[in-house]
Computed example of a mutant assay.
Amino acid sequence: MTKPANKPAGAPEKTATVGTRERIVRTTSRLLQRQGYEGTGIKQISREAEATLGSVYHFFPGGKQELAAAAIRHGDEEFAVLLRAGLGSSADPGEAITTCTRMLADELRASGWQDGCPITTTALETVGRVPVIEQAVAEAFANWRAIVADWLLAAGIDAEDARELADTVLNTLEGAELSAQVARDEEPLLVSGRHLARLLATYR
C-alpha cells in the first residue's frame, strides 16, 4: 500500500497504531496476571503481542513500568465490566451477588484456574517500590469499591453502610477468588456468594 506523502517512511497507519497498542496492553495484562511483574519481560511481551520492540517503546517510552501501569488500568476496566454485569443481573442484591460469584467462578475455570484478579500479583510485587504502578492499583481498587457502593446505594442501603459493605464485598470476592484459584475449585467463590447474600439481606 502506498504511504501518504506527508507520512514518514515506516510510520504505522492509524488503524494499525490503535490495534498494535491495544494488543500490547492486553498481552501485558494477561502476562502480569499469570506471571507477575518480575516474571514478565519486555521481550516476551513483544513476542507474544506480535509487535516489535520498537513499537513497544514507541507507545510506552517509559518502558516496563509505564506499560505495566497501562495493563493495570486495562485489568481494572475488564473487571469493572464483569462486576457491573454480575451486580446488575438482578434487582435482588442476594441474587445479584451470587450471580456475580458464579460468573467469577466460570471465568476462572475457563482459564484453567490461571486468571484470577487481574492486578493482585503485580500489586503485591511492586507495592512501595514502583509508584506509577502503585497509583494504578489504588485507582483500580477505588473504582471497584465505587461500583459496589453505587450498586448498594441503588438497592436502598444508606450511604455509610454502603461504603463499608462495599469494602466487605470486594475483599470477600478477592479472597474467595484467590482461594478458588489455589484449590482449583469454584466452591470458595460459591460459598462466599451465598454468605454475602445472607449478609446483604440483613440490611434490607
Rank of each mutant, 00 (worst) to 15 (best):
E13M: 10
E164R: 11
E50R: 10
V81H: 08
A16G: 03
G62R: 08
L67H: 00
A149T: 12
L170M: 13
E174V: 13
V81C: 03
N6Y: 15
A51M: 04
K7S: 08
T121P: 00
S29K: 10
H58M: 14
G19L: 09
D167Y: 15
T202M: 10
R194D: 12
L124H: 11
Y37C: 00
L32R: 05
G75W: 00
A71N: 02
W113V: 02
Y37A: 00
W144M: 10
R26M: 07
A71H: 01
T98R: 15
Q65P: 02
G39R: 06
V132T: 13
R163E: 15
L87W: 01
L104G: 04
P12W: 03
K64R: 12
V25R: 01
L53E: 15
V18L: 10
A69R: 01
V130R: 02
A68M: 03
A16D: 11
L178E: 11
A142N: 14
E187V: 13
P118V: 04
R204V: 10
V148I: 14
P8N: 05
G75A: 04
I97T: 02
G112V: 06
T15N: 12
A155L: 06
K64N: 06
H74Q: 13
T121L: 12
G63W: 00
R47F: 12
A5M: 10
R145Q: 15
G88P: 03
A142Y: 11
T20L: 06
P118H: 04
G193P: 07
D167R: 11
T17M: 12
Q44N: 09
I157S: 04
P12R: 05
R26Q: 11
V18W: 06
E160V: 12
T20V: 10
R21G: 03
S192T: 11
A166R: 00
R145I: 07
G39C: 06
R163D: 15
P93A: 04
I42E: 06
A180Q: 04
I97H: 01
P8C: 05
C100H: 13
L199R: 09
V169F: 03
A85I: 07
E164K: 11
A70L: 02
F60C: 03
T28A: 09
G88R: 05
E187Q: 14
V25C: 02
R145Y: 11
D106Y: 12
T28R: 03
Q181V: 02
M1G: 15
F79Q: 08
I72Q: 01
R21I: 01
D92N: 12
R21M: 06
G86A: 00
S55L: 04
L82P: 01
L32I: 08
L170A: 08
A91M: 08
L173D: 01
K43P: 02
N143Y: 13
G86D: 01
Q114P: 04
A166C: 07
P8D: 06
A49T: 05
T27S: 04
R34L: 03
T168N: 09
A142D: 15
S192I: 05
P131L: 02
A136T: 05
